[in-house]
């Protein structure tokens, strides 16, 4: 019996910071140009997002990228900037559990 090649493992979707910024601006910063939102802009210290915002972003990541952020990763610090959201999503996509 000849060996069949293994199917390539599914690759984690690339999470775009531009895409995250567009969602954050649309949902939490109406009137702001997404291009002006720096990836490290602190969304927590400036009260742009709160606990409800964390859930909305997690829901969006699941809808948009099929990435389910584990419950234990749903901490506000993991969503404090566009860059942090991307890192959180990538860890979740890679199956890593902890911050």
């Amino acid at each position: 019996m000849s060996a069949q090649p293994h199917p390539a493992p599914p690759t984690a979707p690339a999470v775009s910071e531009d895409d995250i910024a567009a969602f954050v601006v649309e949902r939490f910063l109406p009137g702001v140009d997404a291009a002006e939102l720096d990836a490290e802009y602190d969304l927590l210290a400036t009260a742009v997002i709160d606990s409800l915002g964390v859930l909305r972003i997690a829901e969006w990541l699941a809808d948009r990228y099929r990435i389910v952020v584990p419950d234990t990763e749903l901490t506000s610090r993991n969503f404090r900037s566009v860059g942090a959201i991307r890192s959180t999503a990538e860890r979740a996509a890679a199956g890593e559990g902890h911050v």
């Binding site: 606990s51 859930l55 829901e59 749903l74």
Partner: peptide, 22 residues
């Protein structure tokens, strides 16, 4: 231990249910 994790679980991570709680 972040207490919000348990709260999010309680509401099945549903933003609508969490908002109703608020």
């Amino acid at each position: 231990a972040d207490p919000m994790v348990g709260i999010f679980r309680h509401f099945d991570r549903d933003p609508g249910r969490f908002q109703a709680f608020m």
